[in-house]
């Protein structure tokens, strides 16, 4: 996977000086990051350090207070004097970026199949039959070929999260965002979701993953970003950052995970 992440390759996402304040609280305080096509970037850091806010700024679920964001060929400046995309323009921007959330957030009034079809049918106005073919393939890919007719409440957490991943992938996004997608799962269900994510990474999906699964970061990430108090305190190749952190704050954060990082040698 690391060969996909060669710097100088095709830059898919470029974030420069991104800031986000909620009133007087500044959740993200000047973050810059490049993500290359096909690269897997893992973002780690203590709870409340601004990881979710950073991720939500990338697909504009939050409006950044300042900075510049480029996704694909679209560049947007934020702050005084700049206007945010709105309405259909904003929706189109988001449609190119998939996102998976901690709480799955499946649509409860639709089956697994309906959930996965929802993006293509509602957003892309694709014919139902065509969308169904895509959705069935994706559900089969995440190991849920036999669960297409189930409603979310009839599925385990791990199954729901796999449906959520398929739902996002059905839009054929250029970029996938994962926000602690295994944190709400029972420990025995974490593996099945991480396996799906690993497969996506192997296929060359560009991903930004916020996670506390250090073994996943070690095995799958091309690039690891460590955040603390709204800023990037360290970043680099997974092996360097996770095993030989230079920043004392990274080291102290990672010390809680060292058993996990070392348990399975890459």
């Amino acid at each position: 996977m690391t060969n996909n992440g060669t710097p100088g390759g095709d830059v898919m996402v470029r974030v420069e000086g991104l800031r986000k304040s909620y009133g007087t609280v500044e959740a993200v305080r000047g973050v810059s990051l490049d993500v290359h096509r096909g690269q897997v970037v893992v973002v780690i850091g203590p709870s409340g350090c601004g990881k979710s806010t950073f991720l939500r700024c990338i697909n504009l679920l939050e409006t950044p207070s300042a900075g510049t964001l480029r996704v694909g060929d679209r560049t947007i400046d934020f702050g005084a004097g700049h206007t945010m995309p709105r309405g259909r323009d904003l929706a189109r921007f988001r449609a190119r970026i998939g996102m998976v959330f901690q709480q799955f957030d499946l649509f409860p009034h639709m089956t697994a199949l309906g959930n996965v079809m929802s993006g293509p049918v509602i957003v892309k106005k694709m014919r139902e039959s065509e969308a169904e073919t895509i959705a069935r393939d994706l559900l089969a890919k995440v190991g849920l070929a036999n669960f297409t007719a189930r409603f979310p409440r009839e599925l385990s957490g791990g199954q729901q999260q796999r449906v959520a991943i398929a739902r996002a992938m059905a839009m054929e996004p250029e970029l996938m965002l994962f926000d602690e997608v295994t944190s709400a799962l029972d420990p025995e269900l974490v593996g099945e979701v991480l396996d799906v994510m690993k497969e996506l990474a192997l296929e060359g999906t560009t991903m930004i993953v916020v996670t506390h699964e250090m073994a996943f970061a070690r095995d799958v990430a091309d690039h690891v970003v460590v955040m603390d108090a709204g800023q990037v305190v360290e970043q680099g190749a997974a092996a360097d950052v996770l095993l030989q952190p230079k920043n004392p704050r990274t080291a102290s954060f990672l010390s809680r995970f060292h058993s996990t990082i070392g348990e399975r040698k890459a």
């Binding site: 921007f93 988001r94 799955f104 957030d105």
Partner: peptide, 25 residues
């Protein structure tokens, strides 16, 4: 609020989100 953010993240406009996701529920 997860329903709203999931619909928006998929790229739905406010109208599409209301009609297909929020109002039915």
């Amino acid at each position: 609020k997860g329903q709203w953010q999931a619909a928006r993240a998929l790229g739905m406009t406010n109208g599409e989100m209301m009609r297909h996701i929020i109002l039915p529920q």
